[in-house]
């Protein structure tokens, strides 16, 4: 079933480019992983102090830089497929010659929010790991968050289609603001689940893929009333 949903998403206008963006993200992650195992970076067996100094793995790169790159790549890999509605909105509501610009501005703002959020999450996961929290505990946290009205409200706001100015700096401002607010609501909807794979040492990539597919299937469902809910029950009314 999820396969059918994923395929249907990819058939939408913006589906293919977004899939390619996602693949690029996965590719960067794989490259980072070769350099320095993601499981260690994300799963945060490194202590917080080591994020700054000394360089990890003796390769001469500060861990923080690597962490930011990995965070960006992770956001790209897992979030790009969720953006079909936003990309279509930007495309349809912009002057033809401004479409690439609109998409770039939106993406910059959106990626900035997510990169910052993922970096924070990775650092947080380091701290939590030190406290002895594993993937079971993180999944429990995610389940709790997914039951809250606040989480549903965030998810609903991922479907907003704001007014976009057509001309000049107003258009640029609207695209940036759209990317920024979309990023914020998206972080609100997804942060808890994005945290879980960071605690999965074996099958880290598989866990990330599973999270992405869940979020993608869920995003295709209409908004719902804001109230306490069974976590992860995406088909309930």
């Amino acid at each position: 079933m999820p396969t059918a949903v994923v395929l249907a998403v990819m058939r939408q206008g913006a589906g293919l480019p977004l899939l390619l963006a996602s693949l690029t993200g996965w590719f960067i992650l794989a490259a980072v992983d070769r350099r320095y195992p993601l499981t260690e970076l994300c799963a945060a067996s490194i202590g917080l102090a080591r994020l700054w100094y000394p360089p990890i793995g003796g390769v001469g790169q500060p861990a923080l830089v690597l962490l930011v790159v990995a965070s960006f790549a992770m956001a790209l890999a897992m979030m790009a497929p969720l953006l079909t509605v936003q990309m279509t909105h930007l495309w349809i509501r912009s002057l033809a010659r401004r479409r690439p610009r609109a998409i770039v501005l939106f993406s910059l703002a959106y990626a900035a929010v997510w990169t910052a959020a993922m970096t924070l999450l990775a650092v947080a996961s380091a701290g939590l790991a030190v406290l002895g929290i594993g993937w079971v505990a993180s999944l429990a946290v995610a389940a709790l968050w997914h039951a809250t009205p606040a989480r549903q409200a965030s998810l609903n706001r991922c479907h907003r289609l704001p007014r976009l100015g057509a001309f000049g700096w107003l258009a640029d401002r609207d695209c940036l603001a759209y990317g920024f607010t979309s990023g914020l609501w998206c972080v609100g909807a997804c942060w808890a689940l994005m945290l879980v794979p960071m605690f999965v040492a074996n099958g880290h990539f598989l866990a990330m893929l599973a999270v992405m597919i869940f979020l993608l299937v869920e995003r295709q469902m209409p908004s719902r009333a804001v109230r306490w809910r069974m976590p992860f029950a995406i088909y309930s009314a």
Partner: peptide, 9 residues
């Protein structure tokens, strides 16, 4: 309605 099926669009 912001939390209706169309997210208040």
């Amino acid at each position: 309605l912001a939390d209706g099926p169309q997210a208040g669009n």
